[in-house]
C-alpha cells in the first residue's frame, strides 16, 4: 500500500517543524512535504501535474502567507482543477477564528475543512481518518 501524502503550506517554520514531527509520530505510512508560501506550493502542484506524479491527498493550507496567501492559492488551484484527477482534500488552517475568514472559506468548494491552530495530534488523526479511512 502506497504512503499517504500530506502537504503543509505555512510561512511559520516552527509550525512546520512541529507538525512534521507530529505526523512522523503518528504513522510511518505518512509522507510530509512543506512549503512556506502559496506560490511555492502552487509551483509544486504544477510540477506534479506536469510530471504526472501523484498529488498529496491532504493539504493543510495557512491563510496568511507572503507572496501568495491561502486564498490566492485556492484561486490558482481552482484554475488547475481540470488537470487534477486525484482527490485532494484541502484544510484551511488559521490561527484566528475570524468570522470573516470562515465566511470566505465557504465560498471555496475546494475546501474540505477549516482548522484552527494549534493543530493537535487528535485533530490530525481525525483528518487523516476522514480522508484515508484508517488506511494509513
Amino acid at each position: 500500500m502506497k504512503k499517504a501524502s500530506i502537504l503543509l503550506v505555512d510561512d511559520d517554520e516552527i509550525y512546520l517543524y512541529l507538525t512534521e514531527r507530529l505526523i512522523d509520530g503518528i504513522s510511518d505510512n505518512l509522507t510530509v512535504k512543506s512549503f512556506t508560501d502559496g506560490e511555492q506550493a502552487l509551483n509544486y502542484i504544477g510540477e506534479c501535474i506536469k510530471e504526472q506524479v501523484e498529488m498529496p491527498g491532504v493539504i493543510l493550507l495557512d491563510v496568511n502567507m507572503p507572496f501568495l496567501d491561502g486564498w490566492g492559492f485556492l484561486k490558482e488551484f481552482r484554475k488547475l482543477k481540470g488537470k487534477i484527477t486525484d482527490k485532494v482534500h484541502i484544510y484551511l488552517v488559521t490561527s484566528s477564528e475570524r468570522e470573516r475568514d470562515k465566511e470566505r472559506a465557504k465560498e471555496f468548494e475546494e475546501l474540505t475543512g477549516y482548522v484552527v491552530k494549534p493543530v493537535s495530534e487528535d485533530k490530525l488523526v481525525e483528518i487523516l481518518t476522514a480522508v484515508y479511512e484508517s488506511h494509513w
Partner: peptide, 21 residues
Amino acid sequence: SYLISHNLRSPVTSMSLIVDI
C-alpha cells in the same frame, strides 16, 4: 486585531507546543 490574533498567536502556540514536547 488580526495582526495580534494571527501573527502573535502563531508563535505563542508554537512556543507552548515546544514547551510541551
